[in-house]
């Protein structure tokens, strides 16, 4: 029994040993270099980084989610989206099997702009992976005027105007991502989450953020190294001539 406890204790220690504590600035800079390394300047790599950073700094395991996806992101360079299909009732955006980590910001821009124009927008996002990225962008975009209601196979979320914290509920069965964005909160049908307790509320996200800001974020050393391995691709090998004239 004692040996078992010791074993658990030691494995806990090694787990701690395999973590690295990094600041927000370091994480955002690292993620920015990762996305720059993968996509160059063909995409808004800083916004992709911001999306993952928001998830990680608010307790949504952004790094783990990104790490799972990295081999795929690294392999598929063509992430351009076809034009949205717009009808009177709904806008359909086909992500062609791609990850929302790379396109959430573009989709959100589009939906915000439509909603500002028409008051309410219903969107279906099809063939898309990683719906959490939408939460990451909606959290960091901080829209003062609009309410959003997202239904995905992983979660349901609601975000109030002027809030940085989406309230997250359990998933509903849904094959596509449905998003209603409105200037008027009462135009959104929220009957199915009425009387449900949120899985993650704003207090939890806010307090995670504040603790992490104060102490730094602990992430796995292995993940940190994986990210750095990709980020370092933006570096240029040093030569004798490149060193010249920049100092003594």
């Amino acid at each position: 029994m004692n040996t078992m406890i010791l074993g658990v204790f030691l494995s806990g220690l090694s787990l701690v040993k395999n973590l690295i504590n990094i600041s927000f600035n370091e994480l955002l800079s690292l993620l920015s270099r990762v996305f720059e390394a993968v996509y160059g300047h063909e995409h808004d790599y800083q916004e992709m980084a911001q999306t993952v950073f928001w998830l990680e700094s608010h307790g949504h395991s952004g790094i783990n989610k990104l790490i799972e996806k990295l081999p795929e992101l690294d392999a598929v360079k063509n992430i351009y989206l076809p034009p949205p299909c717009i009808t009177k009732e709904i806008i359909t955006i086909d992500c062609c099997g791609g990850s929302l980590f790379t396109n959430a910001h573009l989709i959100c821009d589009f939906v915000f702009s439509e909603t500002e124009n028409y008051g309410i927008t219903k969107v279906a996002i099809i063939n898309a992976n990683d719906p959490y990225a939408l939460i990451g962008y909606l959290g960091s975009a901080f829209n003062n005027n609009l309410s959003s209601h997202l239904i995905t196979d992983k979660f349901t979320a609601f975000i109030f105007p002027g809030s940085s914290y989406p309230i997250i509920y359990s998933a509903l069965s849904c094959k596509k991502i449905e998003w209603t964005c409105s200037k008027h909160e009462d135009l959104i049908d929220m009957s199915h989450i009425k009387n449900h307790e949120p899985r993650i509320d704003s207090i939890k996200q806010k307090s995670f953020y504040e603790v992490a800001l104060n102490n730094g974020l602990s992430i796995s050393m292995l993940n940190y190294e994986k990210l750095n391995l990709i980020a370092d691709r933006i570096l240029v090998p040093s030569t004798e001539s490149s060193r010249l004239g920049a100092g003594e």
């Binding site: 300047h41 995409h43 351009y80 821009d109 915000f112 702009s113």
Partner: peptide, 18 residues
């Protein structure tokens, strides 16, 4: 058109637009 429409198919410009 809005810049959102414009940038949707031109993501390389989104950074400089904002």
């Amino acid at each position: 058109i809005t810049v959102a429409h414009f940038a949707f198919s031109r993501p390389h410009l989104r950074y400089i637009i904002r």
